[in-house]
Write a protein that binds this DNA or RNA. Structure first.
Length: 201
DNA sequence: GTGAAGATTAACT
DNA sequence: GTTAATCTTCACA
């Protein structure tokens, strides 16, 4: 990959669509975080779609609307950050219109910018190990709960399009066995052949 | 107020 | 393959 292609920040319109449509469109895009320590960016190479009230794997399943999930009911283009297992942050992109709690769970990134900073935050020099998992990418990008509800159309955290069109593969989602039959749905998307995935599909 | 579970990771055997 | 680390959130009383 090189940086010769022009990169454009995605506008609000991009996020105002169905979760599965958004998932395919977001794959291959570049997540950028302008943190106090410096700027980091990574290409989205793996993600999962969570389809709102009808999806047993989704935090908003059954119309649950709590302090934590409140941001999922806002219109698309916001960040949903939460702590899992008391140790790791996970980041989601809210998509769909107001009151439609679809979201895109980011599972892996390919480091693009600020790689030295990512290595420092992660404490490793291995490029493939920097962002190859939901918890890891949040550490590398410096994403924490202060970014809960951040507007992706703002100037702290956003997503860019460099018109890269990756080949997409799909598989079942990971580690949501409690979701019953919804756990088997092919709602995980990844860039074929990427060296930076969290697990093989 | 109390208790149980979790969209993970790293270090084990 | 299994398990510990670790704490917020949610459901219930």
């Amino acid at each position: 990959m090189n940086n010769s292609a022009q990169r454009k920040k995605l506008s609000r319109d991009f996020y105002l669509c169905d979760g599965l449509v958004a998932a395919e469109k977001l794959l291959g895009k570049i997540l950028v975080h302008n943190s106090p320590d410096g700027l980091t960016a990574g290409r989205i190479v793996e993600l999962e779609a969570y389809m709102g009230e009808s999806d047993r794997g989704c935090h908003a399943y059954g119309g649950r609307r709590t302090e934590r999930t409140e941001i999922m009911y806002a219109e698309g283009g916001h960040a949903y950050v939460y702590l899992i297992y008391g140790m790791y942050n996970c980041m989601n992109v809210i998509v769909g219109g107001e009151d439609i709690p679809h979201c895109i769970f980011l599972r892996a990134l390919e480091p693009v910018e600020g790689i030295a900073l990512m290595k420092k935050r992660r404490g490793t020099d291995k490029l493939q190990n920097l962002c190859s998992g939901p918890g890891k990418l949040c550490i590398a990008m410096g994403i924490d709960k202060s970014l809960y509800g951040a507007d992706l159309c703002g100037n702290r955290l956003w997503i860019e399009d460099d018109e890269c069109k990756p080949e997409i593969i799909r598989g079942r989602r990971i580690n949501i066995d409690y979701a019953g039959e919804d756990a088997d749905r092919d709602w995980r998307f990844a860039v074929k052949g990427s060296q930076f995935l969290s697990a093989k599909i």
